[in-house]
Design a protein around this nucleic acid. Structure first.
Lengths: 352, 352
DNA sequence: CTGTTAGCGCTTTCAG
DNA sequence: CTGAAAGCGCTAACAG
């Protein structure tokens, strides 16, 4: 079977003794073709190793069946991979393909990338960042159906999907409360990010729901790295009344906290229970004891974005009647390992 | 300026008072256009917010300026990101765009993906795996210029770029030798992978070059996870004559080794020097002491692949005269942190 | 149900 | 240096 390279719809029409229109119809699964003809055409297509040229189709229909996936910069986090995979899987299910552009957080490049995607008549554009934050996008994005992943624009005028930080913080804290802890430390991030504020609100709310007074002393603000967890654990454990459990802003800081606690002679989770955030497999699953943590819904966000784009077909809704674009928060599931300790629930619960 | 949406080359030709041919020429930076005309056309293009439709161009020229990037499955490693980024950056520099497809290690899907890329007339295809291994590809890939990243086919009939495992193993071992160590343990992988064999060959060769006899007792085969490093360290340190330094197959196993050694009461790197492999930032940089390790050239492989594809334009070299496709090995640079210990070189060197 | 006929927007001869 | 004309391969009416 030779390289196809140049058999067109005309060739197959001729060889099948039909018109090009008919060939086009079978190509597009039109019902208006007799089974006999359809079979005949299909047959020739197979023999001739025919492949439709997508460029011709796009030119004619003005639809490329491609989706642009633009990222600010692919940081050194493994999260990127999950988001891309989620988007990719969803796209493929719809017969769409992803055009990937990484703009290295360069504004000029971002605009150029978007223009390039316009030229290619993509059916929608996804802009993804690698941690939950506010983003700034050039006005030109509004020329396409679009959706933001793990970020949002100040005025919320663009649809977006982000992790539910509040629920994450709440769930983590609640787990510790369930374990019987009442002095729960929180090594939070010190940067102005949704993750910081959302998780803290969740923490505070969970305490309130359980009737545990909020003690600001138990919350320390550090960076997001392992060193920060190390420092934070030191701060917390040197308190007159140290916590019996610690919720760490992320797995990396939990990793640092492990080191600090170990140095201080504590045995985990017997002496101190720990819950992290992010479920960075490579850390969480391999720390000893295994780190109980919350998972960021990266895969789900990627998939959600694609599905959202595809579900509302050409609705570049007229500014006037436009309904507010959705701002979706996806839940962060709890990943149980060992660091949160074993159930003391029954025991403690009764004493509450 | 309103949505462009539909201004064509004809519109701008008319408004500029020239023929479409001329417009096309300025679009393609043809020298055969007077400066005056060119300026005039450019002017109109800007005013009218014109954007060339890539589908039309592709249809006509049969070149899409797109490159397919197909992956077997995006594992939970952060490596994927680097390869993609390397490819992406190189592609953008050439004005090309990446079409991304993840096939989830599904053969049917892989073939479908390749066909889809053929339909889109991509200029080349990159197939990447997330760890160095042998790959099997459907014959259809040979219809396009292609290159493999981090993998190869049995008969080496496809060009490929992989990490230089031998050099990595050699470099790691040599560093330890330089530090004065003569009993160097090796916690190797137990799977049949190029990484296992290549690194071990490098290890053996370095020892030989330094006149240190190879002692098979010092090499233990474990899995690739943290637990394996833990087990391996236990095996090695319980030897009658334990090693004074350990080369770990990867950073994850080094992480496990750290735990084991610490439990046995050793202080790193004072008592035992450690070198890892992979430079998984998240582990290596945050372990204490920081892990000295080798970096896998993922970014470089991604970039190399794109450049290779672009450099040999349409040369689907005739099977007859075809020169052997290149099998490139890219070096794994050494990343120095603290775990390899401080220089004892001078001292020990003289006693060698 | 099916053949024919216009183009989609751009590039590329071919004459000037 | 520039205009006109002929398609690239496919879809979408429009008549049968």
């Amino acid at each position: 079977m030779a390289r196809n390279q140049d058999v067109t719809i005309h060739d197959i029409a001729r060889r099948a003794g039909v018109g090009v229109g008919t060939v086009s119809r079978v190509l597009n699964d039109s019902p208006n073709v007799s089974d006999a003809t359809r079979a005949q055409v299909r047959q020739v297509m197979a023999e001739t190793n025919y492949r439709p040229k997508s460029a011709a189709k796009t030119l004619r229909t003005r639809r490329s069946s491609a989706i642009a996936f633009i990222t600010d910069e692919i940081a050194s986090t493994p999260f990127a991979v999950d988001t891309i995979r989620g988007a990719q899987d969803a796209a493929w299910q719809h017969g769409k393909i992803l055009l990937l552009v990484n703009t290295n957080a360069n504004e000029k490049l971002l605009e150029a990338a978007i223009e390039s995607m316009l030229d290619r008549q993509v059916e929608g554009l996804i802009f993804a960042t690698w941690f939950h934050r506010r983003a700034k996008l050039p006005p030109i994005v509004r020329q396409l159906p679009n959706v933001l992943v793990d970020c949002y624009v100040e005025d919320r005028s663009l649809p977006s999907v982000v992790p539910d930080e509040f629920q994450g913080g709440y769930t983590a804290t609640e787990l510790l409360l369930r374990q019987g802890h009442r002095r729960i430390g929180f090594i939070n991030n010190n940067e102005d990010q949704p993750a910081r504020w959302g998780r803290q609100q969740g923490y505070v709310r969970a305490l309130a729901d359980w009737g545990v007074p909020f003690n600001p002393e138990l919350v320390t603000f550090q960076g997001g790295a392992a060193e920060s967890g190390y420092a934070g654990a030191n701060v917390l454990m040197r308190l007159p009344e140290p916590p019996t459990a610690i919720f760490c802003f992320n797995d990396r800081s939990a990793m640092g906290a492990y080191d600090a606690l170990r140095e201080m002679g504590f045995v985990l989770p017997r002496d101190i229970a720990i819950v992290g955030f992010d479920n960075q497999e490579i850390i969480a699953a391999h720390l000893r004891p295994g780190l109980t943590t919350l998972q960021l819904p990266h895969y789900e966000m990627g998939a959600w974005a694609v599905n959202y784009l595809l579900q509302k077909p050409y609705d570049l809704s007229p500014p006037g009647l436009a309904s507010a674009p959705p701002q979706v928060k996806l839940p962060c599931p709890l990943i149980l390992r060992e660091s949160h300790g074993t159930r003391r629930e029954e025991v403690q619960r009764s004493s509450t």
